[in-house]
Structure formats: C-alpha cells, structure tokens
C-alpha cells in the first residue's frame, strides 16, 4: 500500500512536518517494499491560497491511499475525502521511519474531521 508522509526534509530519517497543506516535502512510501521517494512541495508551500487543496491533489496524483500527518485544514480535508484518501493522525513530531512503523502497526487513529486551521478565507 502506498502512503504519503508529510516531512520536513527529504528522507524518512527526517522529522515529520505536522502541517499537511504547507508541508515542505511529501514522502511516498510503499508499506510492502519499504521503498520511499521524496516529492518537493515547495510550490504549494508558497501558494497564494488553497495550498491544502493543491497538496491533496498532489497526494492523489502520487497514487497514495493514505496520508500520515499532524493537522489537516477544512478544505484539504474535503479534498482528501473526495479523493478517497485516508488520513492517519500523528500527535507529535517524530522521525518518518517511526511514523511509518506506527502506521503499519495500526497505531495511528484515522482523522474523521478537519483538525487544522484554515489559513485565510
């Protein structure tokens, strides 16, 4: 299964980025093979508006079935729902490897409503 982790830098050794919409990097990880590929999210990071929506689009395009992150705003939540992407919630910053392990072990709760702030609008 393919899962996206929001990350502060390019490898799974780096700490998770707790914000979905304006996360610096998306790491696409395959839970079966362990293969991980980093995708820069800088363009969305600096979006004038709707960064979360664009990020959801990116995650959908990467073919992920789930995303591991700390907070998801209302618009990004709506977009991820529409794409059928599950949101696994991590409560504190930790290395990507640990987040991935906890995801695989089913330790992370599924987010069933937005828990982040809309940045404006």
């Amino acid at each position: 299964m393919k899962v996206v982790l929001t990350s502060s830098a390019k490898t799974l050794a780096d700490p998770i980025d707790m914000h979905f919409g304006r996360a610096k990097v998306f790491i696409l990880a395959d839970t079966e093979t362990g293969r991980a590929v980093a995708h820069d999210n800088a363009q969305n990071l600096h979006a004038a508006q709707g960064a979360g929506i664009q990020s959801a689009e990116t995650v959908a395009r990467l073919g992920a079935e789930a995303v591991v992150t700390g907070s998801v705003g209302p618009k990004a939540y709506k977009a991820l729902q529409a794409a059928g992407i599950r949101i696994a919630l991590i409560e504190a910053v930790c290395p990507g490897t640990e987040a991935l392990r906890r995801f695989k072990d089913g330790e992370l709760p599924v987010l069933d409503q937005p828990n982040g702030e809309s940045h404006w609008v």
Partner: peptide, 14 residues
C-alpha cells in the same frame, strides 16, 4: 490561478 478547483476523481469546487 486561485486553487478554487481541485481535480481529484472529479473536479471539486471551493
């Protein structure tokens, strides 16, 4: 330009 439409399985308008 305003990210008001997301293309997921179908277009989603904000």
């Amino acid at each position: 330009e305003f990210n008001a439409i997301a293309m997921l399985k179908k277009p989603l308008v904000f």
